[in-house]
Design a protein around this nucleic acid. Structure first.
Lengths: 198, 198
DNA sequence: TTGACATCAGACAGTGATGTCTGCTTTACT
DNA sequence: AGTAAAGCAGACATCACTGTCTGATGTCAA
């Protein structure tokens, strides 16, 4: 299991992990994101190659492929949660707050979009558990908007959330396919999402 | 390549495929749908087992696994296109026509819902190509709605189409994950789609 | 009925992946 | 400077899956 911490919190009696190890773990996680984005079944060899490391070294830090994939998704979701939280979903008019959060998330989460494909084969409960950090931030905003009459209340907030994520992913796909320009996609996404929820 | 035809159109000089072969192909396609629904990477052995056949027999009809998967998805999309055409997207008020088409398509998708997972890991361009039979039917309807002022005209019709497909796929995902009941999902999908386009 | 077609049973080689291990070299910390 | 940690190179066993082949048996259709 990789340490998520950055510095001086090693357990008493244990030595701290060396700096090069820390660097390797980061390289592996970055490489895994890139590799898995292009191919959800990317091999450990491919990930190691991208990280500029040898396959055995990857296994030093992540005992199995599954452990690595889990670490990658956990980190991606944590990053998303951080960006969303920074956009303050609890502040201001619900529609405006949603637009603000959406724009912030859109700009910073590009590379993680393809990781969704990995999670689709996980058990439902596990999937939900991993997304809790993000859902926990957005769900109150949706509910708040529903209470204020800004968002439809005839469908559950969870539905709105799923549709929102789907539209974001689809928008990213349209952009990648070149069927819409980078300048237009954000505005189109915002209007479509707000229309879908309102 | 499996013959899509049912009966009396064999090429001159070639013998018609025997009835048991026809049956086997149908069994294989059905089994593949079920197997791939549960696991997009289901093996040929697993598909053959479900079809009540031996693996070698599957290879008689489909030269590679890829060919089988393609046949399955092609068949599903062709079925959807047929249903959509039957719902007459060119008739009546655009919003009503869209709702009518959407409901019809959704109901007929039935067991194919889970096949979405296969398509998510295809290259974007290929995904788009396979959806062409459906897109070709819906595009005129979208354009007609935009001209009539029923749908937003500040984003291209292609954008609307992509968002529509994304929402349908997401809705099927929600249903598959058990996060919404089968009774509620159709209504929720319709309102979300109409809201997104209007 | 007869012959071509289809399925079965099982084996086979090839491939590519995972996870482990060893010996050696390099690097970071104290 | 010395030592432990980390990385490298490369091998290895194992596994699951794909695609092919054979020979025997069953089945459709003219």
């Amino acid at each position: 299991m990789p340490e998520q911490s950055t510095a001086d919190d090693q357990a008493p009696g244990t030595r701290r992990r060396r700096a090069d190890a820390e660097r390797s773990v980061a390289q592996i996680l970055d490489a895994a994101v890139d590799a898995l984005a292009g191919d959800p079944e990317a091999s450990m060899a491919e990930i190691a190659r991208r990280a500029g490391l040898v396959r055995a070294t990857v296994y030093v830090h992540f005992p199995t492929r599954e452990a690595l994939v889990e670490a990658v998704t956990e980190r991606a979701i944590a990053g998303a949660a951080e960006v969303i939280a920074a956009a303050q979903p609890e502040r201001g008019d619900p529609s405006e707050a949603l637009e603000r959060v959406l724009r912030a998330a859109w700009r910073s989460l590009g590379r993680y979009h393809a990781l969704v494909a990995i999670n689709t084969r996980l058990p439902r409960a596990e999937l939900h558990r991993r997304h809790l950090p993000v859902l926990g931030l957005l769900h109150p905003l949706i509910v708040r908007g529903q209470r204020a009459g800004a968002f439809r209340a005839d469908t559950p907030a969870e539905w709105h959330l799923s549709m929102l994520l789907a539209l974001v992913h689809a928008a990213s796909g349209e952009l990648q396919a070149g069927r819409i320009s980078e300048g237009d996609v954000e505005a189109a996404l915002v209007t479509t999402v707000l229309g879908a929820l309102a």
